[in-house]
Each structure stands twice: as C-alpha cells, then as structure tokens.
Amino acid sequence: MTAKNRYYVPAWVQRFDDHQRWQHLLLAISVLMLIITGFPIKFAYTWWAPHVMSLFGGFKNMLTVHKMFGVVMIFSGIYHLTWLFIKIPSLKRAKWAIIPSLKDVRDAYYHARYLLGFGKMPKYDRYAYLEKFEYFAVVWGVIIMSATGFVLWFPELAAIYLPRWVISIFRVVHSFEALVCLIAVVIGHFYSVHFNPDVFPSSPVWIDGKISREHLKHEHPLEYDEIAAENIARGIVFEDEEPVQLAGRFKDSIVLQSVLLIAYIGIFAWILVSFVPMLFVFG
C-alpha cells in the first residue's frame, strides 16, 4: 500500500449549496437566452439578425421568448434574495465574505502588478476581489435590465409616471447595459471559469458545488488555511489522493495558451474599434 499524503482539508470542499447552484443555473440559462433573443432586436440591421429571428418563428415570437426568460431571470433574483434572508442567520462562517473591503483594493493593486510581471500573486479569501466585483455587477445588471425591461414591456403603464423622453432613455439603457452584461459574462466571467488554462475547459464548481483541494489552495489560500486550522483544532485528518479532474489538465498546453491569447487580443481590438468611434459621433 503506497503511503498517502495527509491533509487537513478534504479532497473536495463543498463551496456552494444546492440552492446557490440552482440560482446560478437559472441565471445562466436566462441570461444566455435573453442575449440570443435580445441582440437581434438591437442589431436588427445586421446580416445575422433576421436568421436568428426566423429560428424563433419571427420577430414577435422571439420577443415573447425574450420576455419569458426575463421573468425567469427575475425569479432567479428573487430566489437568491429569499435564500439570503433565510440562509444568512444560520451560517457559522463566511457570513459577510462577499462584502468588499480595503483588502480587495490592495488585492487589485497587487494583482495588477503581478500580471505585469512584478511581485507575487495576492492571497485571496473565500471570494477574490474580481468575484465580488462580478457579484455586484450582476446585482446591478439584473436590477437595471428588469426595471428598464418592464418599462419597455408596458409603456402605457410606465407613462403614468414617466415622460416619453425618460422612456426613450430607458430603451438606450436597456440595450447598452445588455452589451455591458455580454462583455462582463463572455470576456470576464468566461475567462475566469472556462478559458483560464488553470481551469480549462470548465471549473466544475457550478455543477456539483464542490471545489478540489488543489484549486482551493491555489485560488483561495486564506480560506484553505482557515479550513485547515479548524480541522487541526478538531484533530481531523484526511488521507487521500489528490482528485483527478478535467479542469486544469491542459494548463501547460502552449496551444491553448497561445490560441486564447490571440483570441482575446482580437476580441479586445474589435471592441475598441467598434465602440471608441461612437464617443466621437455628433448628430
């Protein structure tokens, strides 16, 4: 029998519970469908928009599907809020972990230095500063998109309180905030959980809620230490092997690293070229 290593943290740590995973899945599916059914309206003049519309059986049907998934997204938000109010009082640890603090500002600074080639990676706690940013970006996004969405869905009700020019503004907010969400999800979020070679093809946490010991130590070392300290105090030891997982298996692949680099540079350049000129358009 080979000697196994001894750890104070189990091979798999339950990071998110069932409710959180359902909330995330509902959010992910609804946002994806909202993007698919919404952007053909915003970009109706493109070559691809009519094709997407015909997939749904026309403009009106696509709009109906859009509204349906808007309701699903709002439901996932209400589900999350309800869960928060029920769950928080019962937690022992990680109650306010999501709330930003000065440490996050410091972490951002050190992370930027590290990325540019100077210094060491900062040590994150349960939620890295980027994850906190993302969480509150979603809060902001869901509130903005649902509020503006409802005004656009029921203009005659909105007009009881809002003048026409405000409703016009709401339409611009809705369609451009959608772009902000798209970029935050596809570039920001998808890099950190799918395309980052450390977790490629996908961090598995959203599926079963569990994070491996190795990833926890690498990504959230302070939380790792906290769990270890607790278990040491209780005299709990784990003798097991490192779990084998698909995520991160390709992290040393030069092909993956370079293809991704080229893709991200290309996408970034395309965004700059598309949007910077809009700052200088005078009607």
Partner: peptide
C-alpha cells in the same frame, strides 16, 4: 446616456480583456 454607457462598456472591456491577456502572457 449613450456616452455614459459607451464608457461603461469600454471600462468593462479594458478591465476584463487586460486581465485575460496579461494572465495568458504571464503563463
């Protein structure tokens, strides 16, 4: 309103793209 959101889009794009690009370059 449009200008505000263009700036938001660009801020987000710069932030997220930079992180990905520099992380990959570092790797």
């Amino acid at each position: 309103t449009l200008q505000i959101f263009i700036i938001l889009i660009l801020f987000d794009a710069v932030k997220d793209s930079s992180i990905a690009i520099f992380d990959l370059m570092r790797k």
